[in-house]
Design a binder for these strands. Structure first.
Lengths: 341, 341
DNA sequence: CTTGGCACTCGGATACATTGAGTGCCAGAA
DNA sequence: TTCTGGCACTCAATGTATCCGAGTGCCAAG
């Protein structure tokens, strides 16, 4: 049996009411609160059909209905329109993000802003190194046998590593190295740095090569091959506050939120800043997220996604509002990144 | 009535049993589990005396006793000896921390290690800028009218800020500036940088002064005056797992843990790495921490504290074990910082 | 000062009755 | 057909009564 328009209207009403009240919703309550133009008995029949198709379910026999994952999915895909942000929300985005002094600050402010707007847990990935290019490489001598390698990307990330040199090295060699490495890699995508840099040592005097190799090895190892993706999390207090919204324990969620590897998998890799993904309940393969929904989107300058951000909340979340918030914040952050390039 | 030795023994037993079982402890259970050498009736009398003095209390008439804040305080101050770490724990500290590649990594690993060892929420403050000195200053031109100011401290912190220049500036001026600012401030404590640097512009040509002033202003404003103290937090999942240990909601705790300003006040400023502070229950003036205890210590190379670290847990925590863990981790981190100097 | 005995207290567990929101189904109306 | 009102039924949640026992305070004897 196909679902006619009224049944879809009933599903929408069930979802909206359940999200608002957090209680199983019965036919009578629906008839009272929504203008469906039919009696509770008719709604009961429709609900029975919706249950038959798996869009809603009963926690127990004598209770109202609750949307299933499938029901939320249909709601998100076909029944909801994105709720425009309020003026206050728009203003909050601007005032919150405009004062950021550097990339770390942008990310920190963004994640707190998202958590505050959506009242859920927010996650923001730092711009991925593998999607960035080199803006500048700096070598800072610390002692004759140690130096600091600083790498600055076009997205504003600044990474540094201490390099232990195999022999004492004077400042002029360091300056020479800085110039040659710099001109070799500046402007390059980080994944391409590997190709360019690995034969760099050959252009030097034999007794300088070990030093060059040490630096190059550090550059490659920790910044290209083992480059860590970093993430920031905020709003875990919202988990405690609205934790009972999840039908299961919040503990596995909190654990997952501390496991950045898991988080990164959850964020997924967005190829395009303008696409927004909603994963509902069991659609998340990660364990512990069966009663959670995740809304993610990419961000980055000029439709080139350099990272992802999103929020994690109970499946019974306000999808239209949350989707609008995540989208708006991502767009504004993308603008900021584009302006700072 | 002064507390004789046996009464103190009883208090110790009450604390230990309550921490182990998390249940109010009665006279009979004490007589069975601890070799106090007296009958339950005698223990009852002692407990009545301890209650009279405010060291223990009864949740309700027909229940056992529970230590009060005052009881824990006495226990910590006079009745407990620091529990030596197990071999596994010592090994964990070493293997966990030895692989750190830079300061951010040291802090990140430390906070996770602490959370894991103590099974509580761990907090680590980054080495304070105000207690650090300048190791290196770098100016990286981004565009003709913007440059990146990078500051590296002796504790390994790397801070960067974008400076908008009032006019276009060529590389040679930047190089000159770098050299002069560098030689002026390298080695100086950050709080002293302000004095040295504010008249630096006077040594330059009049048309260069606005540029110099812009850089100096950024340096002062964001790195000396408004220098943010940063903190890392881990183990919030432990709050959920053992949250019922707190007699009240964990929500205000989670909120406080996201408010880094509050956290910094809680950590307090440790002047000496070897002193360790225990604040129990109501001794924490911060709201929401009335059933929490905080154990903090400073850390830093050579008995010079550059930051604090600690853990937050329920008042009914294993004080001897937690104190030992916090102390050991802080000492090892101090060593690492000393070695990397 | 310590101990065994004893009456007393009271939170928590158990059992059972009551309530009411909500359902499914059916017969009659539109 | 499709909708509606009526009605019996289900079952979680709530309330009530009762019991149980860990634990106490007190007292008199050792």
């Amino acid at each position: 049996m196909p679902l006619d328009d009224r049944k879809l209207e009933v599903l929408r009403a069930v979802v909206e009411d359940y999200v608002a009240t957090h209680e199983p919703v019965g036919s009578k309550a629906l008839a009272e609160r929504y203008q469906l133009g039919v009696s509770p008995a008719t709604i009961r029949n429709d609900m029975a059909a919706l249950e038959e198709e798996g869009y809603i379910a009963q926690p127990h026999t004598s209770a109202g209905r609750v949307p299933t994952d499938k029901g939320y999915r249909l709601f998100v895909d076909r029944l909801s329109t994105i709720k425009p942000l309020s003026g206050a929300e728009k203003r909050a985005i601007h005032t919150f993000l405009d004062g950021a002094v550097d990339l770390d600050d942008v990310v920190a402010r963004t994640v707190r802003l998202l958590a505050q707007l959506t009242r859920q847990v927010a996650v923001v990935q730092y711009p991925s190194l593998t999607r960035s290019s080199v803006r500048h490489v700096e070598l800072v001598p610390l002692t004759p046998s140690r130096l600091l390698l600083v790498l600055i990307t076009d997205t504003g990330r600044v990474e540094q590593r201490v390099v232990e040199l195999p022999r004492e090295t004077d400042d002029s060699l360091v300056a020479d190295l800085r110039a040659r490495i710099g001109s070799a890699v500046t402007g390059l995508d980080l994944p391409k740095v590997a190709n360019v840099v690995e034969n760099l040592a050959e252009g030097f005097e034999p007794d300088e090569r070990p030093t060059v190799s040490a630096i190059v090895a550090t550059l490659l190892d920790s910044l290209v091959e083992h480059s860590e993706e970093r993430v920031a999390v905020a709003g875990t207090a919202n988990l405690a506050r609205f934790g009972h919204d999840f039908d299961q324990a919040v503990e596995p969620l909190l654990e997952a939120l501390e496991e950045h590897v898991v988080l990164l998998r959850l964020l997924g890799e967005a190829s395009n800043p303008s696409t927004l993904t909603v994963r509902i309940g069991e659609e998340n393969e990660a364990s512990g997220f069966s009663t959670a929904s995740i809304i993610t989107t990419g961000y980055g300058p000029d439709d080139r996604a350099v990272g992802s951000m999103g929020v994690v909340g109970p499946t019974r979340m306000d999808y239209p509002g949350t989707i609008a918030s995540v989208g708006a914040v991502a767009r504004y952050v993308s603008q900021i990144l584009a302006a700072n390039r």
